[in-house]
């Protein structure tokens, strides 16, 4: 194995640890915005989703917070959440998704903290294996990785 990527990974992990208090996610509504650091998100009740994904092999275990825990439960059914990624990727997600399925903002995959050099720090993960209807390209586009903001509309 080439040592360079290995070293880089070690540094990336330590860099992540140093920046644990930095804001990594902004959740905004009509007139308010809340920011969350990695530590804030880790402090939320953690939920595990074990599932296959369209870009990895086999069943992977994801740990993270339930998206609906950030949104509160007074949203109308027709509300949508615009999820934005680090690279400006955007997709609209109906809030009903978060009510109907245990969709999480995954912070780690198979016990390893997700890095911005992978799909981190936050990857929206659907319990794909528990619901056959989720095994569809129209849901795959909602698996936003490198999530930076959720904007409720």
């Amino acid at each position: 194995m080439n040592t360079t990527p290995f070293l880089a990974a070690v540094f990336a992990l330590s860099a992540g640890a140093v920046a644990a208090q930095d804001a990594i996610l902004t959740v905004s509504g009509a007139d308010s915005a809340t920011t969350y650091s990695h530590d804030d998100l880790m402090a939320l009740p953690q939920h595990r989703v074990a599932t296959t994904t369209s870009v990895t092999d086999g069943v992977v275990a994801f740990d993270g917070f339930l998206i609906r825990a950030l949104l509160g439960d007074d949203l109308p059914d027709d509300a949508v959440v615009v999820a934005t990624a680090l690279n400006d990727y955007q997709v609209e997600i109906p809030v009903t998704d978060f009510a109907r399925y245990d969709v999480i903002g995954a912070l780690s995959m198979d016990g390893e903290t997700l890095s911005p050099r992978d799909k981190g720090p936050i990857w929206i993960v659907y319990p794909r294996d528990d619901h056959p209807e989720l095994q569809d390209i129209r849901y795959d586009t909602r698996w936003v990785w490198q999530l930076v903001s959720l904007q409720v509309q």
Binding site: S54, V55, T56, D57, L86, N87, S115, P116, R117, D118, K119, W145, Q146
Partner: peptide
């Protein structure tokens, strides 16, 4: 630094699983 991370992230995606 951010662009570097994103580029590495995409390359990592290509280096794994079905890709």
């Amino acid at each position: 630094a951010q662009r570097f991370d994103l580029t590495i992230s995409r390359l990592n995606l290509l280096r794994r699983g079905p890709q």
